[in-house]
C-alpha cells in the first residue's frame, strides 16, 4: 500500500510528503530524455556523400531532352564531355531558360552539387556562348530491367540530406512537378554508376503517372543510353504503371 498522499495543486505543501518520489521521477525523466535524445538523434540513416561544391562556371553544349543538361567543354573544373544536370532555384527546373538555347554553346553560372560522378548546377545565370557546339552522340546500352528509386536530382545529389526515401516522397514529387531533373538511383550499378538521369521511353520528360514510384524501390524496364558521361534511363512507362 502506498503512503496516503493527496496532492492539491493550489497547496504546494501537499506535495511535501511525496517530494522524494517526485525528485526521483524528475531524475528518471531527465535521464530518459537525455538517453533517448542521444540514441534517436544518432541512429540516423546515412544520407550519402552528396553535397554542395561551391560556385561553378559551366561552359558547353546545351541538351534539353529529357531534361536540360550541359555537356562540357574541357576546363579546369570539368573534363571534356562531362554532363552537368541543370536545375533552378528552389523546386524549379530551367526548361524555360534552356529551351531557346537547345543545341547551342552556353555558359552557365551557379552553385554546384555533386554525388558520386553526377554533377548538377543550380543555375544562377544562363546565356549563349560564342563558338561551335557539336551535340554529343548518344550510345545505346540496350534494354535493362532495373530496381531502384526515382528521386528528384536536386535533393538526392546533396541539397537535402537525406533527399530520398518515403519521407521525402512528397518533396520529390513537388520538385519533379517543378521541372527538377529526376535521377534514378539503382540498387545495383549499371556501367559503374547507380545514379542515372531518367526520362520516358521516347526520351521525353518523366510522366506524372510514375510519381507513385518516387521515394520507394521499384522495378522498371527500359533502355539505357549515354548522354555525355551520364547514363539516361528511359523507362517503359506503360509497363511500369501497369505493374
Amino acid at each position: 500500500m502506498k503512503r496516503d498522499v493527496f496532492f492539491v495543486g493550489w497547496s504546494p505543501r501537499s506535495a511535501l510528503p511525496m517530494i522524494w518520489f517526485l525528485g526521483a521521477m524528475l531524475l528518471v525523466l531527465a535521464g530518459a530524455s537525455a538517453g533517448l535524445a542521444l540514441a534517436l538523434g544518432s541512429a540516423v540513416n546515412d544520407p550519402g556523400g552528396g553535397d554542395f561544391t561551391g560556385d561553378k562556371v559551366v561552359i558547353g553544349v546545351m541538351v534539353t531532352a529529357p531534361y536540360p543538361v550541359i555537356v562540357t567543354d574541357p576546363s579546369p573544373a570539368f573534363p571534356a564531355g562531362h554532363t552537368v544536370l541543370l536545375s533552378g532555384g528552389g523546386k524549379r527546373g530551367v526548361q524555360d531558360q534552356a529551351a531557346p538555347l537547345a543545341g547551342q554553346r552556353v555558359r552557365a553560372t551557379g552553385a554546384g552539387v555533386k554525388r558520386g560522378e553526377i554533377d548538377m548546377l543550380l543555375v544562377d545565370t544562363l546565356a549563349a556562348e560564342p563558338g561551335n557546339a557539336p551535340v554529343p552522340a548518344e550510345r545505346d546500352l540496350g534494354v535493362w530491367r532495373l530496381s531502384g528509386e526515382i528521386c528528384d536530382g536536386k535533393c538526392v545529389l546533396g541539397v537535402m540530406r537525406p533527399g530520398d526515401g518515403p519521407t521525402h516522397k512528397a518533396c520529390a514529387n513537388v520538385c519533379l512537378t517543378g521541372g527538377v531533373p529526376p535521377v534514378f538511383v539503382a540498387t545495383s550499378p549499371v556501367q559503374g554508376t547507380r545514379y542515372m538521369l531518367m526520362g520516358d521511353a521516347k526520351g521525353g520528360r518523366l510522366p506524372d503517372a510514375l510519381r507513385d514510384g518516387t521515394g520507394v524501390i521499384r522495378r522498371y524496364d527500359g533502355s539505357v543510353r549515354t548522354l555525355g558521361d551520364v547514363l539516361v534511363f528511359r523507362a517503359d512507362v506503360a509497363a511500369a504503371v501497369g505493374r
Binding site: A30, A37, G41, P47, D51
Partner: peptide, 23 residues
C-alpha cells in the same frame, strides 16, 4: 534538454558520410 541534446550533441555521434541537413 531533449531538443538541445538531439540538435547539438547527437549529430556528433552519427555515423554518416556527410551530416544530415539542419532541417
Amino acid at each position: 534538454l531533449y531538443v538541445g541534446l538531439f540538435l547539438w550533441i547527437a549529430p556528433m555521434l552519427q555515423r554518416v558520410t556527410a551530416p544530415l541537413d539542419p532541417w
